[in-house]
Amino acid sequence: MRGVLGAAVLVVVAGSAVAADRADWRRVATKEDRGRLRRWRDAWVEAMAQVRASEHARAAAALGALVDGDRALADPALPDGDYRCRTIKLGAKGMTRLRYVAYPFFGCRVSEGGSRLVKLDGSQRFAGRLYADTDARAVFLGTLMLADEARPLAYGRDRARDMVGIVERVGPARWRIAMPYPAYESLLDVVEIVPAG
């Protein structure tokens, strides 16, 4: 993956310095997050089954490749620049929660040679690192920032704030991060990322 692969470098993960091989996210990911990634397909199948059985089936189907777990193109690397991103929550952990929620787009930015991703605005923001994995996917490790917090916690300090996801390109200029079993509400969060403007 051009521009994302690298040798051992000093990586700053959500504000904390971690010596790691950027291509090996496994050295940085928590045990819990490695487990969530291993079960990504289970999360996807269960979440989409709930959505298809709900009144939101048509809205989810309209998202096309974004919610197709088997759709990914080669070269998932995100070039540096400004993007628009939105979160779509699929499935629910409890019976009373919504099975589908699509939030509006907010500003996001990729920097540091395609290795850092930050959501710039909104009441819930994320910041973290993008790690090379295969020719068709990268891995995101980050943390959640709330309300007026100016800086993210270091990844690995708070399990409820840690975020992990599979980064894939699903169109010529369209990416997603699939986050299985997030800490809150849903079974799967899909973050859609498209260029700004």
Rank of each mutant, 00 (worst) to 15 (best):
P180N: 09
A132W: 11
G171A: 12
A43S: 08
R22P: 15
M145Q: 12
G35F: 05
A8Y: 08
L130N: 00
G6R: 15
T134R: 12
P182I: 03
K89C: 08
V118G: 00
A59Q: 14
E192W: 04
R97T: 11
P79E: 01
P182V: 03
G165K: 00
V164M: 02
G113I: 06
G107E: 12
D133Q: 08
R159T: 09
A19F: 11
V4H: 10
F140D: 07
S115M: 06
S54R: 02
L90F: 13
E32M: 07
V67Q: 05
R137H: 15
A65T: 11
L63M: 15
L117G: 07
R71P: 01
D42L: 10
V28A: 00
L141N: 03
Y184R: 11
R52M: 13
R151W: 10
A72C: 12
A127H: 10
S115I: 04
D24V: 10
V190K: 03
L10T: 14
K89L: 13
A102R: 14
A8I: 08
R38L: 10
D189M: 04
E192T: 00
M163H: 08
A154G: 15
G107K: 12
A138M: 13
A74E: 14
R86N: 02
R157D: 12
R27A: 14
R137D: 14
R161N: 13
L78S: 06
A19T: 12
S54E: 13
G142I: 03
E46F: 05
A138V: 07
W44H: 09
W25E: 01
A183L: 01
A60P: 09
V118Y: 05
I166K: 01
L187M: 05
A49T: 05
R174Y: 04
F106R: 14
G81L: 06
S186G: 04
D121W: 06
I166H: 06
F140T: 01
A23F: 04
Y184A: 09
W175M: 01
Y83M: 05
R52P: 08
P152D: 11
I177E: 00
T87A: 13
R71K: 15
Y155K: 00
E185N: 09
R174F: 04
P172C: 00
A132C: 05
E149F: 04
G197H: 05
S16W: 08
